[in-house]
């Protein structure tokens, strides 16, 4: 791990409060993840990649925006690792960068329909934009 990777890792761990060494590599998080097929990096990879400081590829990955934050991985993890919190921390790190908002107000019109609940837009902006 070089210095930059170390700093990134520390930041992610601090934000998420997750300790990736608790993971015993059982893969239950990825076995239960409903968004698995849409993700380039899967929940168990988030855990092991953060642990090894391999965070740059995660920051670039679309996987960040496919996590449903449904907490299935958190509740079903036998070791209480809480992978979803890692995904969230990495995503925040990505969207907090200048001009890195993943969802922009002008994109919204396309997804709106008559029944769209307000909750959907609020949640999406909170997840995808700073």
């Amino acid at each position: 791990m070089n210095n930059k990777e170390k700093l990134l890792k520390e930041e992610i761990l601090r934000m998420s409060g997750v300790n990736p060494v608790k993971c015993m590599r059982c893969g239950k998080c990825s076995g239960t993840c409903p968004a698995y097929d849409e993700m380039e990096y899967h929940p168990h990879q988030f855990v092991s990649m953060v642990e090894s400081g391999d965070i740059e590829p995660l920051l670039e990955s679309k996987s960040l925006y496919r996590c449903l934050t449904c907490f299935a991985c958190v509740d079903r993890c036998p070791r209480n690792v809480e992978p979803a919190k890692l995904v969230e921390a990495v995503r925040l790190l990505a969207v907090r960068k200048q001009g890195a908002n993943h969802l922009k107000p002008e994109d919204v019109a396309a997804v709106l329909d008559d029944d769209t609940p307000q909750q959907l837009l609020v949640s999406a902006f909170r997840k995808y934009a700073k």
Binding site: R25, S30, G31, D37
Partner: peptide, 27 residues
């Protein structure tokens, strides 16, 4: 298969098993 079953969903007369295959990086 190295991996864990995450969810079992009974549907009809089948049990739909969702699991991870860690070595092939597949669900």
């Amino acid at each position: 298969i190295k991996g864990m079953v995450g969810k079992v969903t009974p549907e009809g007369d089948k049990l739909k098993v969702r699991a991870s295959d860690l070595l092939n990086n597949k669900q």
